[in-house]
């Protein structure tokens, strides 16, 4: 295979390796059968793991200071899906979380609101009531989160339940067992079915985020394949992980998914969001991810419409950094809420 310049999108680079459909309807061909989908997915170029990690690491070395840092902190706060997904979640805890999403720093009203609160389906109504009409979305995990080990009707009922309770966004998990066993079409059809279950009675639909659980997919090639299945099946967002396994969002796997949405938009014109989740705890980490977004997908993705952080403790660290910038003195955990 010949070497080309790095300036062209990699879709163009591998165009002569695999015939790539150029419109979304054309992807109908690749989803006609399991073998057609496998041919397509295995025809995607292999991921250069060393190059990917080196690129992610080098983008992590940018120094962002003063006004740029202030901008990035506010942007990161506005991109947070403030999350509580514990067996011990109580209505009180969810209400407290909702209040924090609307007003993250009670000592500084200029702090932006977070993008959403993310809860289990049975807490959607509580979260909705807690937000009290504020412009913060309610995201609900569904489809037997986090393992996804349930029958399809159960997963769909779980989804419809959350949508009916008022969820604006659904975070579904794929069936990693089916994916790893090579049953790609089953994975595709699951996402499609859940997407249909996101439609409300009035015809509008909740936005669908598809969680791949990258920590369980073993290889970068698998993450790339899963991303394409998700995008073809109609995901509005692709999301790294549940936060419930050892390896969660890393700069490298997020970079890989950002490349996927960039290429998908280049081919189809359809923009898809990315949400890294789990393990992002410090402002420094969050800023590194924002650099990845800007340098890979571009400024189009630098809004909470197209990029989110699934996090809970990250918000406190962002608020402490924000206080440091506005007061000039280091803040401490005594000056933000205990979650």
């Amino acid at each position: 295979m010949c070497a080309r310049g790095v300036t062209g999108s990699y879709a163009r680079r591998y165009a002569h390796v695999v015939t790539m459909p150029t419109t979304l309807t054309a992807f109908a061909d690749v989803t006609t059968s399991d073998s057609a989908l496998r041919r397509f997915l295995h025809g995607l170029p292999g991921v250069d793991a060393v190059g990917l990690e080196a690129r992610a690491a080098s983008l992590g070395t940018r120094s962002i200071k003063t006004t740029a840092k202030a901008y990035a902190i506010d942007l990161a706060i506005s991109m947070i899906d403030l999350t509580t997904l514990e067996g011990a979640d109580t209505p009180g805890k969810v209400r407290a979380l909702a209040a924090k999403a609307v007003n993250p720093d009670p000592t500084d009203r200029s702090t932006p609101m977070t993008a959403a609160v993310c809860v289990y389906p049975d807490m959607v109504a509580t979260a909705k009531a807690g937000l009290n009409g504020a412009d913060v979305k309610v995201a609900s995990v569904a489809t037997a989160f986090p393992a996804g080990r349930a029958a399809l009707p159960v997963k769909l009922a779980d989804t419809r339940d959350a949508v009916a309770a008022g969820a604006d966004e659904i975070d579904m998990v794929i069936d990693r067992g089916a994916f790893l066993a090579g049953r790609y079409l089953e994975t595709y059809e699951l996402i499609k079915a859940v997407k249909e279950a996101c439609v409300r009675e009035d015809g509008t639909a909740a936005r669908l985020k598809v969680i791949f659980e990258t920590g369980e997919l073993s290889t970068y090639d698998n993450i790339r394949r899963a991303s394409w299945i998700g995008m073809i099946a109609g995901a509005d967002f692709i999301k790294t992980s549940t936060g419930k396994v050892g390896v969660n969002a890393t700069p490298a796997n997020t970079l890989l998914m950002l490349e996927a949405v960039r290429d998908f938009k280049a081919q189809t014109g359809i923009q898809i969001g990315v949400k890294p989740a789990g393990g992002i705890r410090t402002t420094k980490d969050a800023l590194k991810f924002l650099v990845l977004v800007n340098e890979t997908a571009g400024a189009d993705w630098l809004t909470n419409e197209w990029f989110r952080f699934g996090a809970s403790s990250l918000l406190n660290d962002l608020l402490m950094q924000r206080q440091k910038l506005s007061t000039g003195r280091y803040s401490g955990p005594d000056y933000v809420t205990v979650d």
């Binding site: 000039g328 003195r329 280091y330 401490g332 000056y335």
Partner: peptide, 9 residues
Amino acid sequence: PHLASHQDV
């Protein structure tokens, strides 16, 4: 000065 004004000290 930074340690003296640090809110977590």
